[in-house]
Amino acid sequence: METKNIAGNSVSFTEDGYMSDMNEWNEDIAKELAKEENIELGDLHWKLLNFLREKHAAGVSLTIRSVGKSSIVDIKGFYGLFPGGPLKLATKIAGLPKPASCV
């Protein structure tokens, strides 16, 4: 656990670099986290971040496929917005835990 000052907020992170409490998140923090990943947040980014936060809060496990069915973007579009690892990057910027993939 590590605490950093981001956009005037004290924010705690897990050892894999994800925020440990989604309630500490706000839009200014998201902008800073996105900047670290060289992403500038546009309308679609924000829609996706809010979609992921809502789903996570409802206890749904997040997958790239479910984003593709969200009617916000298709999977290719998701990759376009968050190049490389879209779900890993998007959850990080959305202040959510690292997506638990398969065990």
């Binding site: 790239i64 690892g85 890993k88 638990a100 993939s101 398969c102 065990v103």
Partner: peptide, 8 residues
Amino acid sequence: PMSGAFTK
């Protein structure tokens, strides 16, 4: 599709 051979 995972980030490694296993996740844990």
